[in-house]
Every structure is written in structure tokens, then in C-alpha cells.
Amino acid sequence: MTFEYERTVTTTASAADVWALWSDIGTWHVWDPSIERVALEGHFAEGAAGTMGLAGGIEAPFTLEVVEPGARFLDRLTIGDLVISIDHVVAASDGGAEVTVSTVVEGPGADDIGPMVTGDTPKALAALVGMAEQKS
């Protein structure tokens, strides 16, 4: 089973300010209500691995599968038989940036779990761009 979700927002913040928050795992719990803590082994770079502490006491190992500094990163979490891939893309636009998050949940029960995984995405994006706009 596969569940897919995508959300795009525009912001007056620069792509660089959005990227600065994305690439600083210490801020993730501030703007994403589903994350309680993140630990990453090494730098924010392709192949780096770590653990996310998610709401509800769930611990999920993750890997940064793709990192294109300033533009995109894709992280992949594994929770039991589920694989959750979250692609984050930021691109400069007139007067700011366009921010897109695409989530794919694969595995048994993906159609049931997917809406729970992505339920906070609108709140997370709003908080992320709000913080980025304060920096700009």
C-alpha cells in the first residue's frame, strides 16, 4: 500500500532563510508539532542518519537520502514495516520562496497511517515560513 500527500506554500521569506531552518535539526521541534526531538549523527548531509522522537513516544530512525544544499532534502523514516519518505523543496520566487513538502508512506496500513503522518503538515509549514519570515 502507498499513501501520497503534497503541500506547497509561498512565503515572503527567502529560500535561504527557509533552508537555514530546515538544515538546523535543532529547530525542527519548534516549527513541527509532530517532532519532539531529533538527533543526527554527523552533519546535515546526504547519507547522515539519526533518530526522531515523534509525538506519542514513537522513536523512528531516519536517513537523509538526498541533500541539495539550499534547495532540497529528502529524509526517510522507518517505523516497523512502514517507510515514510518526506521530500522538502524550496525555490526562490518573486518576492520570496515557494516551499513544497511531499510525503510518501509505504507499507501495510499506509492508507490509514498516511493521514496521521501528514495531519500536522499545514501547521508545520505555516510555523516554518513564519519563523523564516521573521528572519528575513
Results as ranks from 00 to 15, higher is better:
Thr2Ile: 13
Thr2Tyr: 06
Phe3Tyr: 13
Glu6Met: 09
Glu6Asp: 11
Arg7His: 09
Arg7Tyr: 03
Thr8Lys: 05
Thr8Glu: 08
Thr8Met: 06
Thr10Lys: 11
Ser14Cys: 13
Ala16Lys: 09
Ala16Glu: 14
Val18Arg: 02
Val18Ser: 03
Trp19Arg: 09
Ala20Arg: 14
Trp22His: 05
Trp22Ile: 00
Asp24Thr: 12
Asp24Ser: 15
Asp24Lys: 11
Ile25Gln: 05
Gly26Phe: 09
Gly26Ala: 12
Thr27Asp: 10
Trp28Asp: 07
Val30Trp: 07
Val30Tyr: 07
Val30Pro: 00
Pro33Ile: 08
Glu36Pro: 03
Arg37Gln: 14
Leu40Tyr: 00
Glu41His: 08
Glu41Gln: 10
Gly42Ser: 06
Gly42Phe: 04
Ala45Trp: 04
Glu46Ala: 11
Ala48Tyr: 00
Ala49Met: 12
Gly50Trp: 06
Met52Trp: 10
Gly53Gln: 11
Leu54His: 04
Leu54Asp: 00
Ala60Gly: 12
Leu64Ile: 08
Glu65Leu: 07
Gly70Phe: 06
Leu74His: 06
Asp75Leu: 00
Leu77Gly: 15
Thr78Ile: 10
Ile79Asn: 05
Gly80His: 08
Leu82Tyr: 04
Val83Gln: 07
Val83Trp: 04
Ile84Ala: 05
Ser85His: 04
Ile86Cys: 12
Ile86Lys: 05
Ile86Ala: 15
Asp87Leu: 07
His88Pro: 04
Val89Met: 08
Val89Gly: 05
Val90Met: 06
Ala92Ile: 01
Ser93Asn: 15
Ser93Val: 13
Ser93Trp: 07
Gly95Val: 08
Gly96Val: 09
Glu98Val: 11
Val99Lys: 04
Val101Ala: 03
Val105Ala: 00
Glu106Val: 12
Pro108Ser: 15
Ile113Cys: 07
Pro115Met: 09
Met116Gly: 09
Val117Leu: 01
Gly119Ser: 12
Asp120Cys: 12
Asp120Tyr: 10
Lys123Pro: 02
Ala124Ile: 00
Leu125Asp: 06
Leu125Arg: 01
Ala126Met: 08
Ala126Trp: 06
Ala126Lys: 15
Ala126Tyr: 07
Ala126His: 10
Val129His: 05
Val129Gln: 07
Met131Gly: 11
Met131Ser: 10
Ala132Pro: 04
